[in-house]
């Protein structure tokens, strides 16, 4: 079958048929020509990569500029004098209590992730293992919450938390983050649990495990990648959350980094160098975590819509 794709005619070994390295099957000229084409693609790829990285390169360069330099007209691409102490000084600026903001982000993210996981794990396990009359409605409900976002419910959430007197607290944001990320966690872990044959669990019971033991020793190790994916994705979503925090957390010490950031941008004067330094700190860990779970993301986010 491969022979067809390696024929010299360019129309058959085209876009849709990524050529594999198989020197020797075609005639002598073809592999070299293909090699040149592949490196050509690399060049195009580099340009694409640059486009996607550009804003973050601007961010990186800006984070090391001095206040004068970043507001200089006309601007320079790179800092003339690399100001590493932006990363130190930003913690004590008058615009916002940044240490508190970082703490907020961390507490809200950890709390939201933990709560989402605790609620999602049993639901994911049970729906993957058992059939019951209300399973479809339940999964549908979960799916619909994925489609809803705090923005559309902002006024309702605001009113609810004011009535409960937990407005302007971390707890409010932990609840919001956990609830709106629950569905991804349920779906991804559900699909992992569903791949473990139920006989494996039954074998563990017959081997003398209690339900708890079979969960801890057999099921959890087997679905661990799914759990990690759920944890990381939820954590990142909480970390980046903006809209609900804006409405629900008016006090500056309670606000997360995403909201605090906007305080540096004034109508007349902006401390861009700090905005970018904070952004670097806000983005780097998240990108690293994200890269770890990339291959499971699509299936979880599209919840069965794409195989």
């Amino acid at each position: 079958m491969r022979e067809l794709a390696t024929e010299p005619s360019p129309s058959t070994s085209g876009v849709l048929d990524p050529p594999k390295t198989e020197a020797g099957t075609g005639n002598a000229a073809t592999p070299r020509k293909r090699d040149r084409k592949r490196w050509g693609l690399t060049v195009v790829g580099s340009v694409v990569a640059l486009v996607f990285l550009a804003p973050y390169l601007i961010m990186l360069s800006g984070a090391f500029k001095s206040r004068q330099e970043i507001l200089k007209v006309p601007p320079e691409y790179l800092p003339g004098d690399w100001k590493f102490d932006n990363f130190v000084n930003m913690w004590g600026t008058p615009e916002t209590p940044l240490p508190d903001n970082l703490l907020s982000t961390v507490v809200i993210s950890l709390g939201g992730t933990l709560l989402a996981l605790l609620a999602a794990l049993p639901a994911a396990y049970y729906t993957a293992r058992h059939s019951f009359r209300l399973k479809l409605p339940f999964m549908l409900l979960v799916l619909i919450t994925q489609m809803l976002q705090p923005t559309v419910l902002a006024s309702g959430l605001f009113r609810e938390f004011v009535s409960l007197e937990i407005n302007d607290t971390w707890l409010a944001m932990i609840l919001v983050n956990a609830a709106f990320n629950l569905s991804f966690a349920v779906w991804i872990m559900h699909s992992f649990f569903a791949t473990v044959p139920k006989e494996i669990e039954e074998a563990a019971w017959l081997d003398g495990c209690s339900r708890g033991q079979s969960m801890r020793r057999i099921m959890l190790p087997l679905v661990w990648p799914g759990i990690v994916t759920a944890i990381i994705f939820t954590f990142i979503a909480c970390w980046n959350e903006f809209a609900a925090s804006l409405i629900l957390l008016p006090t500056d010490t309670n606000q997360p980094l995403t909201v605090a950031l906007t305080r540096f941008i004034g109508q007349y004067e902006s401390a861009w160098q700090y905005v970018f330094a904070i952004s670097i700190i806000g983005i780097l860990p998240v990108v690293a975590l994200f890269a770890m779970i990339e291959k499971h993301l699509v299936s979880g986010l599209t919840a069965g819509g794409v195989k």
Partner: peptide, 14 residues
Amino acid sequence: IVPWAASVVMTSTV
């Protein structure tokens, strides 16, 4: 992946 993972506020601020 970077623009996907990064906070949208931070990206648009740039």
